[in-house]
Every structure is written in C-alpha cells, then in structure tokens.
Design a protein around this nucleic acid. Structure first.
Lengths: 343, 343
DNA sequence: TTCAGAATCGTTAACGTTCACAATAATTAT
DNA sequence: ATAATTATTGTGAACGTTAACGATTCTGAA
C-alpha cells in the first residue's frame, strides 16, 4: 500500500502525499519535508497500473510519429511502424495513442514538425534525416519539455538526444569480417552505394567507413573500390569496372543499404562469377536472394523492434521518469539462409 | 467501459456479466445466452490493468521455476533466471511471483516436481532434460490444467507442449555454413562434443546432425570427424587425431556446446595452425576468445530472453487466455568480434 | 396455501492513484 | 477583535474488475 502507508507514517492524508509526489502546489515546506523523509526511509514505488487505470480515460499519452512515407520503393518504413502499432496495441488500455505523420523530403518534414507542435503531444518519435530540421525539432521539444526518440540512424546534434539505432560503423566492420572470411586477402572488394532520390543516407557512409576500417586492419593493401549508383538508372559497366569484374579473382560486394538484391541479376547478366554478396535488411527480395544462395549474408537492424522499443521506452519514461530504455544500441543480426526468421 | 456497457445493453447488472465472463455459477441459461449474445455483437475485451489491480493482492499468480542448479561449471543457467527475474520485476505490481527450484540430476528433478505439485502453482517453467520426468510432469500439469513452458531444448513428448527454444538442427546448419565459408571443401572438419557429467545434451546431437546435413548438401565427400570428450579429463591426442591435426590442411572445429573456449589452448599447446573455431553461447570465456580472434563465431540462443519470454508469455496466457507467446523459436544469433553485445 | 431452501440476480466495497472539492487553519485587512 | 482572504490539509468519487453479501424470485414439500 504505497501512498496510504506513506500517509499514515507521515501523519498526513493521502491527498497531501499525492501533492508531494506529483509536485502539485498547496503543501507547506514543513509537511513536504516530513513526507519526503518518510519516502526516503521506507521508499515509495508508484503503482503504475493503478495510476494508468485512473488516468487512461482522462489523460491520454499522445505520441506523434514522424517517419518517411513508405512507398513501394521505400517499404522499409512499414517495419518500424509495425513495431509501433504492436506496442500501442499493448498499451491502448493504458491510454497510450500514436498519431502518424509522413514526410517525403526536407520540406514536408519541416511542415509536419510544425503540425506536430500545434497539437500537444507528450512525445515524438522520428528519424534524423535532416540535420537542421532535427536540431530545431530537438530544441522545440526541449523547450516544452517533451521527449524525442530518433530511430534508425545516429547523427551528431546540438544537444544529447535519444537514439534507437544500430552502430553503423560496427555493422560495416561485421560486413568486412564476414566478406573477408569468404573472399580473403587477394580478392577484390566493392562497396556499392545504391542511392535513392534522397541522396546517400548517413548510415551508408558509416557502414562504408567501418567496412574499410576492418579490411585495413587486416591488410592495408586490400583492394577496395566504391561504386555509387542511382537506384533508378540502369547499371552500366565502365571500362574500369569491366576490367575489375571480368577476371578470375574472387570478388566481394558490400551493398551499404537494402538494395543488395539488385546485384545478383546484374552479375548474372554480365556473366560474372566468383562473387560473394552482403547487404542489409530483410526485405522480400533480399530474403529470396538468400534462399537462392545469390546473397551470402544479410545484416539486419530489426526495424520492427526499433519501433516497438521506442514506444515502450517512452511509456516507461513518461509514467516512471525512467529514461533507461530511450537509448538503445540494436544488435547487428547476421542472417544466412539457415537462420531466416519467417514472419 | 467494458463490463458496464455490456450490462446495460443486456439489461442485467455488472455482477451477472462478470459471472458469465468468469464462468462462475449462479446465472440462468437464459440470461447467460442474452449476455453472450451482446458480447458477440459488440465484443468485449477485458481491461487487464483493472483486473490485475483488483487481484494483485488477493490472487497472486505463482510460477514455479525448475532449472538446473547453476554452478561455476554450469553458470549458463544463471542467464534464463536473469530473464525470469527481469520479467517478474516488471510484473510484481500486478501480483506475479516466481519460486525457484533447482535440480542436479534426474532424481532431484523428480523430487522437486513432487514438491512443486504439493504447492498450488499457476504455471511451471522448466527444462526437458529427462524424458520420462518431463512426460509425467506434463501429464500432472494437464490433469490440474496448469500451463507448462519448457526452455532451452525441444524433445518429443507424449502430448504437445510449449517450447521456448532454438531450432538446434538449424543452428547446426548455420554453424556448417559459417565454418564452410572459412574452411572450404578441402579442409577437415571436427565436431567436438565436450560432455559433462550429465552426458551429451539433446541440443548437441541435433546441432551435430544439422552440421553434417549442411556439409553433406555441399559435398558428400567432405571429411568430418566427431570427437567426444569429457569436460573434466585432459585432452589427449590419439595417433589418429595427431595425424589429422598435424598437417597443413585447413581445419574447422565445431564445438556443439558452450565449451568452445577449451579448444584454443589445446591448439596452442600442440602448435596446431590453420584452424577455425565455432561454438555456442556468450559466456565470459567465449567472449574473451572472440575478442582475441581465437574463436571465429559464436552462436547464441539468448537464454536470458528465453526466461523473460517464458514469464511474459505465461502472464499473457493466464490473464488473457492467449497462448500465442508460449511457443517461440528463438533466432540463431551469429556473433563475431564486432557485434558482441556488452552487458 | 405456506414456507424452507435453492436458484438467480443486484449492490457494494475494494484494489491504489488522482484530483476536484470541501474543510480547516493561518494570515492579513478592517 | 472580527471579517475576509489565503494557505494548507482532508475527503471522497472515479477508473474497470472482482467477489462477497444481501435481496429477490422460484421450486417443491408439508
């Protein structure tokens, strides 16, 4: 009996204890001290269940979600949303609600931020794609004291912020190790950045850095070439590439984003053998390639769980002032043909 | 307003609705039909929060945990317990409690089962190490209608049961793929079963099967030798092993349990080169070996999460009759030096 | 027909927290 | 000193579910 017990021991009513606990006004410094002393002595842990039961109807926890519009070309973003929806499903009876906002570019992002700050949300979940916009969102949120969680990518911002994301540099290193295990020191390595209209994502660069760092730590002479390619255009072999690919060397191809499934058809078309491929994210196409032995490894960043964890972490923070689950480094899942998780 | 709304629409009191919902006696068939019809029409989902708030003090959910006694030699079993404790911490305010029982062998297992069935638990979490004892536990539990969750290993039992475990055969196949990537077709493969006093664990055999299946699917002529070795005795090289190890071939060593860290010192002592090692479980020693590049891969089965999931799944089942989280296939986590998760 | 007992149903307090409101005490103004 | 404020504290209802208890209706035997 938390609040009741405290009240009895401090010789005050539960109303007073509640005022102290929730920092509501109308309690003398003297009695406040008295209550706080008792709490310090025997401790108090709020019964979140009872609290939310009482508040579920009147004080909803409203969370704004601002993520990229998931198109057929960007179906990836359905996954964090799925996780968010799952968490919300578990928490609706406790009065937690999510409101989804989409963006397609920096401009729509900014207008959506404005929309969000017009309503009064208790928390925001978003993605740090645009540095300036992210910074101003963070500032705004801090000024009215609401928590923000950034998903997917970590970028340096003006103030410390909460990120639920993978360590992309480490992920690149893992890719380096796995590919090197298959290709060895004498093969040729290709880093492929398949960029979409939004340019190369920060994750991609960090992954490339990690990849290079790892291979350099093995042997500084290892041959690595970076290829940047727009997602829409057809892949054309320059003379240089032709030369690099059309030989008997073992070749390792590291695709820094989720488009690794675009590689096998190109290799087949140009009759290139002796290749190993590693990429990111468990989309349908990549899973298919894994199953057909066209891709050797996929690294996954568990986007669904990222969304789920964001909501659960925010709930914990809002209801218990416990921020420990707002900053999470997502493990780097290594997927091969045999440990694909069927959903 | 769940129960209230149903009551109003059915023209009965909330007490009657509650009696119908909780299948308590004292309601005529007629009114029961009436209430059930309304529920079918507009649906009813119980507010678990309110329910548990009411019941937390009077109707505790008591879960018995029967797992191997974790010694220094078997520290592994601390991990599921940690997950269980974490889940219980999250659920204590809802009236969920765990009671831990240990066993060291088949005999103490059986006596503990008796102890457990003397008290009245609402659920049991255990490990299917002993087929007969597991079967009789399952029968007993079914006869008094309480759920059982088996952790860590799946074995065939008389009745269908709930397992939270990895697919060990698949795990062996993953090991095969990873090791083959480093060793190739021409090397020599060793499967090492380091058995403790309890004999070889069922997981080990399934892992070995998977490993062999995978390599056979690549090339039926691949050279594989199984070595079984007691954990306590010193490793002695037979003439045959000496011959197999002391050459320039590439060698791949697959340790089917958590003792893979015992291998590198042996290799060093006998000056054996050109080896790759893969094993199971993220214990201190294995982590150290990963960091020092003495072990190439570790497969992890997330024992902590297994314990956590068991409790959460049982809670969901007991409070909402939803058994969907009682049967879980744990993903096969592939760990290399760069994606070690620091706890 | 009457009435004990069973069958059926409604009422209400409780779980712990929150907060509007009422009640009291302390302070200032007249 | 008394009225009028203000400051401080206590009270009680509500969140939705549960279950003990009491009230009512029904059944069948005397």
């Amino acid at each position: 009996m938390g609040i009741k017990r405290i009240a009895k021991l401090a010789n005050v009513s539960i109303g007073t204890v509640d005022r102290v606990l929730n920092k509501r006004s109308g309690v003398s410094k003297e009695t406040e001290k008295k209550v706080l002393k008792i709490i310090e002595e025997i401790g108090y842990s709020k019964n979140t269940t009872a609290s939310r039961l009482k508040l579920a109807a009147t004080k909803k926890i409203k969370i704004a979600i601002l993520t990229p519009k998931s198109s057929t070309k960007w179906s990836y973003w359905k996954l964090p949303k799925k996780g968010i929806t799952k968490a919300i499903d578990e928490l609706t009876e406790l009065g937690v609600m999510a409101y989804f906002y989409d963006f397609t570019d920096s401009s729509t992002y900014k207008t959506q931020v404005k929309n969000i700050f017009l309503k009064n949300y208790d928390a925001i979940v978003t993605v740090p794609f645009f540095k300036n916009a992210s910074n101003s969102l963070l500032n705004l949120a801090e000024s009215i004291n609401i928590p923000v969680v950034f998903l997917d990518t970590e970028i340096p911002l003006h103030a410390t912020a909460n990120f639920i994301r993978q360590n992309s540099e480490k992920a690149g290193m893992v890719a380096g190790r796995l590919l090197h295990g298959l290709v060895g020191n004498d093969g040729h390595y290709f880093i492929v950045n398949i960029s979409n209209d939004k340019g190369i994502h920060a994750n991609g660069k960090q992954r490339e850095n990690g990849f290079r760092t790892f291979l350099k730590s093995i042997d500084t002479d290892i041959n690595i070439k970076t290829i940047t390619h727009a997602v829409d255009s057809n892949f054309t072999f320059t003379e240089e590439l032709e030369k690099l690919f059309k030989n008997n060397n073992t070749k390792g191809i590291f695709v820094t984003n989720s488009r690794s499934h675009m590689i096998p058809p190109i290799l087949k078309k140009h009759n290139i053998k002796n290749t190993f491929v590693i990429g990111f994210d468990m989309n349908k196409e990549n899973i298919e390639c894994l199953k057909n032995d066209k891709i050797n490894f996929i690294l996954d960043q568990n986007p669904k769980y990222q969304g789920y964890a964001a909501i659960k972490g925010l709930y914990k923070y809002i209801t218990e002032q416990d921020a420990s689950d707002l900053n999470i480094e997502i493990p780097i899942d290594i997927i091969v043909k045999e440990n694909i998780i069927e959903v």
